[in-house]
């Protein structure tokens, strides 16, 4: 179980994430939503241990993750939002390196990397530098790197970005399956449809604060709205999208 208790992150005194508290249960998929700049990626980075919270606690299975960072990283699989990969390495070399850094034994590593590359449709391009990969291909590499070591906690930040339809379907099923196999899965995405289908629980962030934290069914019932998109628009969207659209068209044509 992953638990955040009043987690806050300040940059130069400005709260980017403010008193965020929620629980992501084992065996559940928790969707983490919010507009751009709401603090989603910052929260995921704090859970991944890449940045320190200014206040609050993050616990995994009841223990603060800061108590034993090494153990936490051993259990953690993380797909970041930006696909920063070493461009000079090939896909195979990158996965091999990650597996070696995680201490996966040689034979097992070869089996896993070959399997992932094949299943993700990257086998033919395994010896091509990542600099030549498309966005979707990089995303697949990130995914494979995050899952190589069978993590207990899976953090996915915009994992569907750049994926083709086929791969997106595979990933959707994978997320469900990972949860079914007892992992904690927390993922953020702008694709509300997908989130709605996959997640058992939703946390919505707006301006750094949690504005919703419940199962989708409960939220629908509470707010009397049929879809997640409607709920999201109610809670987190400030703009009149129609008006904005009109104004942009006028600007372009001016």
């Amino acid at each position: 179980m992953l638990e955040l208790r009043d987690v806050t992150k300040l940059y130069a005194g400005i709260p980017v994430v403010s008193e965020v508290s929620f629980v992501a249960q084992t065996g559940e998929v928790t969707g983490y939503l919010g507009p751009n700049g709401s603090g989603k990626s910052t929260t995921l980075k704090m859970i991944a241990g890449l940045i320190e919270p200014s206040e609050g606690q993050i616990l995994f299975n009841g223990l603060p993750i800061g108590r034993n960072r090494i153990a936490h990283k051993q259990r953690l699989g993380y797909v970041p939002e930006e696909p920063h990969l070493y461009p000079h390495l090939t896909g195979a070399e990158y996965l091999e390196m990650v597996g070696q850094l995680r201490g996966i034994p040689g034979g097992q590593l070869v089996h896993k990397t070959t399997g992932f590359l094949r299943l993700l449709g990257l086998h033919a391009d395994r010896d091509v530098p990542i600099s030549s990969y498309s966005k979707g291909m990089r995303q697949k590499i990130l995914l494979a790197a995050a899952l190589l070591h069978n993590p207990d906690l899976v953090l996915l930040d915009e994992p569907f970005s750049g994926l083709d339809v086929n791969s997106a379907l595979v990933l959707r099923g994978l997320i469900r399956e990972l949860a079914a196999r007892g992992k904690v899965v927390l993922f953020s995405s702008h694709e509300l449809d997908t989130v709605e289908r996959v997640s058992s629980r939703i946390v919505i962030l707006h301006k750094g604060r949690v504005v919703a934290n419940d199962s989708i069914q409960q939220l629908r019932a509470l707010m009397s709205l049929p879809t997640l998109e409607d709920i999201f628009s109610q809670l987190a969207v400030e703009q009149n999208t129609e008006a904005v659209t009109q104004e942009m068209v006028e600007l372009i044509e001016s």
Partner: peptide, 17 residues
């Protein structure tokens, strides 16, 4: 440094002393 933003993978996989 080289490809600095990509060094996150070393932070994430720092599972040894």
């Amino acid at each position: 440094p080289f490809a600095m933003p990509s060094n996150w993978i070393f932070r994430i996989t720092a599972v040894h002393r």
